[in-house]
Design a protein around this nucleic acid. Structure first.
Length: 359
DNA sequence: TCAATTTGACCAGA
DNA sequence: TCTGGTCAAATTGA
């Protein structure tokens, strides 16, 4: 059994390497523009196929592990929690656990920092596209400010176990550290994603208020730079949630975020909700021009032998490793959009720093 | 009236 | 035993 697992892991590693090589090739050629748009598209297609293949295999590995371990410790759905331990995001188990304990120590978690800019309300700044209900507030030892506890509004209606904790930073009271725990299992996550995706096509250049009205009062657009994938890719990412963490961290330096101009809307590439629900990562738009997605964003860890780090400190390290945008390759993603068709919506040029990914 | 927030109490992990 | 996380009754606001 264990031997088979090793073979599968080697096989997966090989596929991943292939994908990485293809991505590197694409990256190199993007800079030199030596390849035609069509060729680049083929490369992209190959990359996507490679990863799809990996995920399919990962599903099998997961099955194997279920049988092998029984307790699914090495299941493909392992996330890293605060304690840096590999934990299983098994909703059934979690529900069982919840019945026993009020604490949810085993939930996967990730943290992001949000700076509240002057002229922006706290409500807007901390809004992430999902509706939350506050269920508690606690003074934390050593912290100047109390921590707020929020859970998904649809907790009772849809059994969504997503929670978040909002802690005002001691050092910088304008900065809030938001720790998300668990993922949304309610409808709003995908709903918001789709809405964002649609809007990115329709509402480019519109102001935030217009967007907010379109989404209703509760579901507001995050002010942070958003990332929007189309519906098809979204489905894939949903699938990935049950897969292992396989990608190394990579970063997208964002163009001049933090300044409240209308262009920010145009720079919204991925929905924040997606980041929360699919990319278990962290980013700090106001403090850094870089977005960092931890590998956990693409699933979960363990079993592959890949080093996956999603602890706060690690994320912070990545965030602080800002690369000057002037040195970043500029990629016109409108071109890529051609090849992603409806899978991915990149509605604006943005800067990709893939050096970490390809290093 | 209903939904959201506040706040003190309770519970379990460290 | 201390502390963080959650519950649930009370309160507030639309």
């Amino acid at each position: 059994m264990e031997g088979n697992l090793k073979l599968e892991q080697v096989d997966l590693m090989s596929d991943l390497m292939e994908g990485k090589e293809l991505a590197k090739e694409l990256y190199d050629n993007m800079l030199s523009s030596s390849l035609s748009l069509e060729t680049k598209g083929v490369l992209l297609e190959k990359i996507l196929l490679t990863y799809e293949k990996v995920f399919t295999k990962l599903g099998n590995v997961g099955e194997t592990n279920k049988i092998t371990n029984g307790n699914m410790v090495d299941s493909p759905c392992s996330f890293t929690n605060d304690s840096n331990k590999s934990e299983v995001l098994d909703l059934d188990q979690d529900v069982k656990h919840k019945n026993v304990s009020k604490k949810r120590k085993t939930m996967c978690s990730w943290t992001k920092k949000v700076k509240v800019c002057s002229g922006t309300t706290l409500e807007v700044s901390l809004n992430d596209g999902c509706s939350w209900r506050k269920y508690g507030q606690k003074d934390i030892l050593g912290a100047k400010f109390p921590r707020g506890y929020y859970r998904c509004t649809h907790r009772h209606a849809q059994g969504c176990l997503a929670t978040k904790q909002v802690q005002k930073s001691d050092e910088d009271p304008t900065t809030y550290e938001i720790t998300y725990k668990g993922r949304h299992t309610c409808n709003q996550a995908s709903h918001v994603n789709k809405a964002c995706s649609l809007e990115s096509k329709i509402c480019l250049g519109e102001n935030k208020h217009q967007k907010n009205e379109a989404q209703g009062k509760k579901i507001e657009q995050p002010q942070e730079t958003m990332f929007t994938f189309g519906s098809e890719l979204e489905v894939k990412e949903e699938d990935l949630e049950t897969k292992k963490d396989i990608f190394p961290s990579f970063c997208f330096p964002s163009p001049s975020i933090g300044t409240e101009n209308e262009n920010n809307d145009n720079n919204n590439i991925f929905s924040d909700t997606m980041i929360e629900n699919h990319f278990l990562g962290s980013f700090s738009p106001s403090e850094s021009n870089i977005f960092c997605f931890s590998p956990c964003q693409f699933g979960s860890s363990s079993g592959l032998g890949l080093s996956v780090q999603t602890s706060e400190s690690d994320i912070t390290d990545i965030v602080s490793a800002t690369t000057p945008t002037s040195n970043s390759p500029i990629v016109n993603l409108d071109e890529l959009d051609l090849f992603f068709d409806n899978n991915v919506d990149f509605d604006t040029d943005f800067l990709i720093n893939t050096s970490e990914f390809f290093s």
